[in-house]
């Protein structure tokens, strides 16, 4: 297995990251808020070209961590630098731009836009980036062809199998040439065979294109496709290192 170049400057650097959810109490007599801390002082550095699995039981904070890394959510305290930029200093519009240009998302439930063709789904991030419709579609079609879905371009998500939908989602994540792909349980809704195929796609993207991939999973055999394992437990990092064989 030939390993891609790993840079010295981390693509993702997280320091003392905490996340506390404040929930309004529904109790009319009691009132007030209930605080629940999901992340405790998480420190993490992920370099370019890494392929990282984040594991943990449900409620361990792995999804919250992913949302923060994906600029979909903000930490309560602590710092997060993406490619050297302090995310806390960015405006809503700049965050949208970061999500658009620097990060590609792949979700467990695929999260494709309904009643829209696979082609348009893949092309949409480019439209938000200001690319013309024609150019967006051309690029989207290239990507669909690369993932072997060229002839499904005109299909709508509900006409595709789970594996095909996830491939469309991966194409969409790649359409803006991001440095980072965040995948939140991308195989959670897929059977074993399809899961392996999807993981092979990720592996290929990491090894051949050097794209940094952070992947949340709770399955050991999925984590085995990656090369670094971060294990969270009750909001704390309890293991960070090689994937056990």
């Amino acid at each position: 297995m030939n390993s891609p170049q790993v840079s010295d400057h981390p693509l993702i650097r997280v320091e003392d990251l905490c996340k506390i959810y404040s929930l309004e109490s529904g109790n009319k007599q009691g009132g007030g808020t209930v605080n629940s801390q999901v992340l405790y002082d998480v420190n993490l550095a992920i370099h370019r070209g890494e392929f990282v699995a984040v594991m943990g039981h449900s409620g361990s904070g792995k999804s919250t961590l992913m949302n923060i890394l994906g600029c979909l959510d903000t930490p309560t305290s602590g710092h997060y630098w993406l490619d050297g930029r302090d995310i806390a200093s960015l405006s809503d519009d700049e965050l949208a731009q970061v999500r658009n240009r620097n990060i590609g998302f792949v979700f467990q439930g695929f999260n494709l836009l309904k009643r829209m063709t696979a082609l348009d789904n893949v092309a949409t991030p480019l439209l938000y980036a200001g690319v013309s419709r024609a150019a967006s579609r051309k690029r989207a079609l290239e990507l669909l062809k690369q993932t072997g879905l060229g002839k499904f371009a005109a299909y709508q998500p509900n006409q595709l199998s789970g594996g095909q939908q996830q491939r469309v989602a991966i194409s969409r994540a790649l359409v803006n040439n991001p440095q980072l792909i965040l995948a939140d349980e991308p195989t959670g809704n897929l059977d074993t065979q399809t899961s392996r195929e999807i993981m092979a796609v990720f592996q290929q993207l990491n090894q051949e294109q050097g794209i940094t991939i952070v992947l949340v999973t709770h399955e050991d055999d999925i984590a085995a496709f990656t090369r670094r394992l971060v294990r969270l437990q009750d909001g704390r990092v309890v293991h960070d290192g090689r994937v056990p064989a």
Binding site: A96, R99, N100, R101, F105, N111, L113, T124, N176
Partner: peptide, 10 residues
């Protein structure tokens, strides 16, 4: 939410 995740601003 999906649109925001793939880069739609407010």
């Amino acid at each position: 939410g999906i649109r925001m995740a793939i880069g739609a601003n407010r």
